[in-house]
Computed example of a mutant assay.
Amino acid sequence: MSKRKPLILVTNDDGITAPGIRALLDVMSKIGDVLVVAPDKPQSAMGHAITINSTLYLNKISAEDAAVTEYSCSGTPVDCVKLAVNEILKKKPDLCVSGVNHGSNSSINVIYSGTMSAAVEAGIEGVPAIGFSLLDYDWNADFETIKPFIEKITLEALENGMPKDVVLNVNFPKLKKDAIKGIKICRQAKAIWAEKFDKRVTPQGKDYYWLAGEFINQDKGQDTDEWALANGYISVVPVQFDLTAHHSIQELNTWKWNE
């Protein structure tokens, strides 16, 4: 008796035509039955935004006889996951994979990332999830190099089962396959963006701004995602969506709240 193929939901934040999601689709099609629901346009840095004040549209863009069913969505990455799980699929997928993002989602970037927010939303929906990112912002980045690693990580997650209420944030260094030293389980590095705004003026005299900034890694630890990536490793950070700072509860209970 043949083993049932896993049902895999594929999404991203760079848009359904991005080379990164095409590379991810290539790998997932070898592993299971695939549904693609992804934004119809780039939605980078959308975080966990959802659409509540305007309509959402889904357009089936794959042919009826296509091996993979694909939908483009007018909304955010999180909208894509919500619609896939609650409207399109008759049962929850066995796995949701998001990416491959064009650019880093390591360290503090996980907070802003549409790629990772899609994975987190899947986790909230009770679906095991992984977000994949490559440290190369080039639209024509080389995704072939990382495909074997994507496959390995995905198969490990399916075989072993994901930790409860945890999703994986996977980042790949921009290296050739033979130069990648391996996979490291890491913690998120403590880092910040030092924001700068480029202030300009329109021909009509109205001020406008372009957001810029510098990424500052404040963490010297050798167990972080930033260290792993800088030293030739693929970083895997387990991410939880329970944002409670459990370690601070005892201290806060010493405050005189009710006196």
Rank of each mutant, 00 (worst) to 15 (best):
T244R: 09
I216G: 06
S117E: 00
E214M: 14
V81M: 05
I61R: 00
N160E: 11
A122N: 04
D26C: 12
I150Y: 01
D13T: 05
L95F: 03
V110W: 04
K199S: 14
T224M: 07
A45Q: 15
G15W: 02
G99D: 01
I130Q: 00
A179Y: 08
V110G: 02
A157M: 06
S2D: 15
V166I: 11
H102V: 09
S2C: 14
H102G: 09
V236G: 02
Q43K: 10
L211Y: 14
V201Q: 09
D33A: 07
V166E: 08
I31D: 03
L58N: 04
F215G: 09
I216E: 07
P128Y: 07
P238S: 06
D242I: 09
E151T: 09
G99C: 09
G126E: 03
P203Y: 05
Y71Q: 03
D65W: 11
S74R: 02
K92I: 07
E159Y: 09
A141I: 10
V81G: 00
D225W: 03
D33N: 12
A230W: 08
I146V: 09
D136H: 04
A49E: 11
D65M: 11
E251Y: 11
A38S: 10
I31V: 05
K164V: 10
I108F: 15
V239F: 09
L58K: 07
E64P: 10
N231Y: 04
E159N: 14
N253V: 08
N258Q: 12
I61M: 04
F197Y: 15
S98Q: 02
P173I: 06
W210N: 14
S106H: 13
G126Q: 07
T17D: 14
I150W: 05
T145P: 06
R187W: 12
K41L: 08
D219N: 07
C186K: 00
D14N: 12
G99R: 01
D14W: 10
W257A: 14
G182R: 04
R22N: 14
K152D: 14
C96D: 00
D33W: 05
H48Y: 08
D26G: 10
I153N: 08
K177Y: 13
E226K: 04
D138Q: 13
P173E: 04
E214F: 11
D79I: 01
A179P: 04
A191R: 04
E156H: 11
L89P: 08
